[in-house]
Write a protein that binds this DNA or RNA. Structure first.
Length: 171
DNA sequence: CGCAAGATTGGC
DNA sequence: CCAATCTTGCGT
């Protein structure tokens, strides 16, 4: 029997949480009551204020405010005016770290993930343990993964570009 | 208050 | 290779 991951699972080092999320089950219950479950297949870690590729590196702003809270919350934002990125806040309060969900089930690409889950700004700050719309369930499924550099962050410069913080499930 | 750019995608 | 489309953050 699956059960939701507790807050303590997320309140750890983001580089530990990210790979462990692979193989876990992302559950979305839509407004009409239907439920869809997806296996998490690809994630990226964004590690707090020091990480120049992380939105929180510019300090606390209206947009990143939720990342500065405790792990276990949802951080969503609109990119390029059309794609909702789904992130999970990790670490202790003030860590400002998060995991970007880049792939679930057969869907690959963070923009398509947001589209499939029908995300919008109302998910900002959603609590993964108490929400009745979106949460993550544990899984005993054993998976193997590979770690490679993140994409789309050339502006961050080294050493951040080289960090192998993009985790992908191996088939 | 105006403007440039973004953790992307898909179409030409 | 570039447009779509809109919020945020920073400069004027």
């Amino acid at each position: 029997m699956n059960h939701r991951l507790p807050h303590t699972f997320f309140q750890r080092e983001v580089t530990d949480v990210a790979p462990e999320l692979l193989g876990k089950i992302l559950v979305r219950q839509f407004d009409d009551g239907s439920v869809q479950k997806f296996v998490i297949t690809e994630v990226e870690a964004y590690r707090g204020r020091d990480d120049k590729a992380c939105h929180a590196n510019k300090g606390l702003t209206t947009r990143t405010e939720v990342m500065f809270r405790e792990g276990g919350l949802v951080y969503v934002y609109l990119i390029y005016g059309m794609y909702w990125m789904l992130n999970i806040v990790t670490g202790e309060k003030g860590d400002a770290s998060a995991v970007l969900i880049r792939g679930i089930g057969d869907i690959s690409g963070p923009g398509r993930v947001g589209k499939a889950l029908q995300l919008d700004k109302s998910f900002y700050g959603e609590d993964l343990f108490s929400s009745d719309r979106i949460w993550i369930e544990n899984s005993e499924q054993k998976i193997t993964f590979k770690a490679v550099p993140r994409v789309g962050i050339d502006y961050a410069g080294e050493p951040w570009i080289g960090k192998p913080w993009r985790f992908i499930v191996k088939k």
